[in-house]
Nucleic acid binder design. Structure first.
Length: 598
RNA sequence: GACCCCGUAGCUCAGCAGGAUAGAGCAUCAGAUUCCUAAUCUGAGGGUCGCGCGUUCAAGUCGCGCCGGGGUCGCCA
């Protein structure tokens, strides 16, 4: 087969980069513009930044559309349609372009030759799961901080969503060329781990046969019984009847370590692995908070002052107080923020400043914090910290993750308050499995609430996007098994050698066009920090495939295994390409592709 | 009172650096199976994109102001 590698004419880059068709055509268009400038048909100095090339919403408008003439017409002092006509004539000379037509207010609609789409199939088979990797990140370093659940108990479903989102975002950014560090901030330095220690101490007493006194404010959860037993195993009776000052630190250390072990294990079951666990405690008594604040002071952003009371609803016990304040208002915050409590201790915000300072010192080019939506009020001040300490060089993107509403058969799942626990992450993963849990949690944008129905997510029907996408992949796997049984060579290398020009049916080309969207989708999703886009794309791709499959019922030409070995090889190559992209997409979501449905 | 998020078909939600006649699933109705998995597919009906101004050649998308829902609001993390 002498099919030109349409998209891959430049070949996959050293890191497997495959330029998206859109950006390749955009380059062609910019080239034409330059040529027109050189030829005096356009004035120099035009800014092409706003020129886009994208598949039109309406397929009837062609394969690709560009707004180039419309955005350049005014600065060039030309009529949009006239400019579009001239550009269309120039573009029609490109070998990939079958037709360039002007439409509407000045769009140029491009129709591409079939071999471009057929070439995509070959490119996918050559690139494998790396096809669609982007150089967008250009090797820059991004830190994605997520989960960061307090080590005071088991993780619940809300944490699961943050974990899945953060992990998928990390995978997406890596696929888009970023060097990614996944990080978990352990809140082990504040009062809440002291509460954990006191709660665990009661369980320790209980393990010695004494009756525990779970006072108001302590954690009542049964999960601390095991911690009590572990404390006995480790310290025997040596901590009994001793003052808190003696046992607090060792009990706290044991309890938090055990909680973190559990958290790590739960994350592991979800398929989430962290690169760094950063201890808040490590910031105290080490001069690191002081260093970060000193930096702020050097920048003139720290001062002693008195805040105005919150307007509207003034707390009863509010009284003016001089505090150490961070002038966050200079970096977009509404009010300046205190870093020291009236008792002289640090506010929660102080270690956060030090923590983000530490991230900056580690040289990241971009920071992402994934937080629960209830932390929305902290976004401004965190951004202010990063803007101030990096002096505007590093951006912080805060992704807020909304809550998960658990239901079963449409009825809300009751939380077990008596045991002091919510529905845990582990319970969810044990019941539905990591793949289902992950996929479902990525079928919504991060900032909208998610309904998670235990019955629905396990349903094997098209109502369930997890199943629907998996089924498409499994159908293709089944196809390849059958082809292999029939003696066909079904390795990607063998399939890439098929005569792809035989894929000339509109239904086949439509599938290939959908595949061609993948590299661009990766970039769009990565740029927006929105992994859910991948899930929606996979659904669309699966839908296209299922539709194509069913067309084979009426049109036998479309059946993958019929029509002779040569034609079958081309069609199986197409199917395999679909499977490759599905599995690449699922890999970003952290979901294992299914080889068969059961 | 201030700030953040949300408001798109009866329901649940997409809508990609603003782009052409706003999409999908569910639900409703009508169809497709001697044939690679019908666990699927095809078609129909269904919309003042919460409301109003503004910016733009072009606004669901950007800005401002309202309305409705949720969240947060100095010494808790």
């Amino acid at each position: 087969m002498t099919l030109a590698r349409g998209l891959g004419s430049a070949g996959p880059g050293p890191r497997g980069d495959a330029m998206s068709l859109s950006s390749e055509l955009r380059a062609v268009i910019l080239g034409r513009i330059e040529a027109m400038v050189a030829g005096g048909d356009l004035p120099a100095g035009l800014d092409p930044a706003a020129v886009t090339v994208e598949p039109p919403r309406d397929a009837g408008h062609g394969d690709m559309a560009t707004n180039a003439a419309m955005v350049l017409a005014r600065p060039a002092g030309l009529a949009p349609r006239a400019l579009a006509e001239a550009m269309a004539r120039a573009l029609a000379a490109d070998p990939r372009i079958a037709a360039a037509e002007v439409a509407g207010p000045g769009f140029i609609n491009l129709r591409l030759r079939p071999w471009v789409w057929q070439g995509v199939v070959g490119d996918v088979l050559a690139g494998g799961r790396d096809w669609g990797r982007s150089g967008l990140g250009a090797g820059r370093r991004v830190n994605v901080e997520f989960v960061s659940a307090n080590p005071t108990g088991p993780m619940h479903v809300g944490h699961a969503r943050g974990a899945v989102f953060g992990d998928a975002l990390a995978r997406l950014l890596a696929f888009a060329g970023w060097e990614v560090t996944r990080e978990y901030y352990i809140n082990d330095g504040g009062a809440q781990v002291d509460v954990l220690a006191r709660s665990a101490y009661e369980r320790y007493r209980e393990a010695h046969g004494l009756s525990p006194e779970i006072a108001e404010g302590l954690y009542p959860g049964d999960y601390l019984i095991a911690v009590g037993e572990a404390l006995v195993a480790r310290f025997g009776a040596s901590l009994l009847d001793r003052p808190e000052a003696e046992w607090l630190a060792p009990v706290r250390a044991t309890a938090t370590a055990m909680m973190m072990d559990q958290i790590r294990e739960d994350l592991g079951r979800l398929g989430v692995r962290m690169d760094v666990f950063f201890s808040e405690k490590s910031l105290y008594g080490t001069g690191r908070i002081e260093a970060a604040l000193a930096r702020l002071r050097d920048l003139g952003l720290l001062y002693e002052g008195v805040l105005d009371p919150p307007r509207g609803k003034t707390p009863e016990d509010w009284e003016p107080r001089e505090q150490t304040l961070f002038r966050s208002t200079l970096h977009g915050d509404d009010v300046d923020r205190p870093v020291r409590k009236s008792d002289g201790g640090w506010t929660y915000f102080a270690p956060d400043i030090a923590y983000h300072f530490d991230k900056l010192e580690r040289g990241f080019d971009l920071l992402v914090d994934v937080l629960g939506a209830d932390h929305g009020g902290y976004v401004r001040r965190l951004k202010a910290v990063v803007a101030a300490l990096s002096e505007g060089r590093v951006a912080l993107d805060v992704k807020l993750v909304q809550l998960v509403r658990l239901t079963r058969g449409g009825q809300p799942v009751k939380m077990s308050k008596r045991a002091g626990t919510f529905v845990t992450l582990r319970e969810v993963v044990d019941e539905v499995g990591p793949d289902v849990a992950r996929f479902v949690m990525l079928t919504r944008k991060n900032d909208v609430a998610l309904d998670f129905d235990f019955d629905r997510v396990l349903e094997q029907s098209k109502d369930n996007p997890v199943f629907y996408v998996q089924y498409a992949h499994a159908r293709i796997a089944s196809l390849l098994r059958k082809a292999a049984e029939a003696g066909m060579a079904v390795t990607d290398a063998a399939l890439a050698g098929a005569d792809l020009a035989l894929l000339d049916h509109e239904s086949e080309l439509a599938l290939a066009r959908r595949l061609a969207e993948w590299p661009r989708l990766v970039e769009v999703a990565a740029r927006a920090h929105e992994p859910h886009r991948v899930a929606f794309y996979l659904y669309d791709l699966a839908s296209e495939f299922h539709a194509h499959w069913t067309r084979g019922n009426e049109d036998t030409r479309l059946r993958f295994l019929e029509g002779g070995a040569i034609a079958a090889a081309a069609r199986i190559a197409l199917a395999r390409a679909v499977a490759v992209v599905i599995s690449a997409g699922l890999a970003i979501l952290g979901v294992t592709p299914a080889e068969e449905m059961r």
